[in-house]
């Protein structure tokens, strides 16, 4: 049952990811990207990683994609206003995409050598277990990244404060 669901979700991920690239309309691309993120969130649920699921939904499908959509809606891009890219940019895109392809092929090459645990712990994705791991084994990177996020938030408030102080 869950194997079938995995394949269905994987199929949806790939199909919507392709549609992101091939859609003419940028807003449609973003909407397909939201679907891609949701199907990845579904994979997390199948792995019983509830916390990762909800973080994926809140952060990627929620906050980040809302920002993307917000910007694209404001710009109101369409076929007529799309600038023709120079050949240099096209070349750069080809190189960057080729590098991504190389790294994906490299990953696939190593797939046979992964040692999966015999009896994986199905409860590892629960909030409590994840929290214990984060605050014991990975406490330094965790604290550093939380400081980074807090400084990002404070930065946003500061940028807002800088402009015209006479409005209230």
């Amino acid at each position: 049952m869950s194997e079938i669901l995995t394949y269905i979700l994987g199929g949806i991920s790939i199909a919507t990811a392709l549609l992101v690239v091939f859609s003419k309309n940028p807003v449609h691309s973003v909407l397909y990207l939201i679907l891609t993120f949701f199907s990845i969130a579904g994979q997390y649920i199948l792995l019983n990683a509830q916390f990762l699921f909800i973080v994926q939904v809140i952060v990627y499908s929620g906050a980040i994609m809302v920002l993307f959509l917000f910007v694209l809606m404001l710009l109101n891009l369409n076929k007529d206003t799309e600038p023709q890219k120079e050949n240099m940019f096209k070349l750069m895109g080809v190189v960057a995409g080729g590098l991504l392809l190389v790294s994906i092929v490299g990953m696939l090459k190593g797939i046979g050598h992964i040692n999966l645990p015999e009896n994986p712990d199905s409860q590892i994705g629960m909030v409590k277990n994840l929290g214990l791991v984060l605050f014991s084994d990975y406490v330094v990177p965790f604290e550093l990244s939380s400081i980074l996020f807090l400084s990002g938030m404070v930065g946003a408030v500061l940028i807002g404060k800088k402009e015209s102080t006479d409005i209230n």
Partner: peptide, 16 residues
Amino acid sequence: DIGILYVLGFVSIGVY
């Protein structure tokens, strides 16, 4: 397990 985060998550999806 994620209780209150579920509420926050789906409220934020509602804006779509």
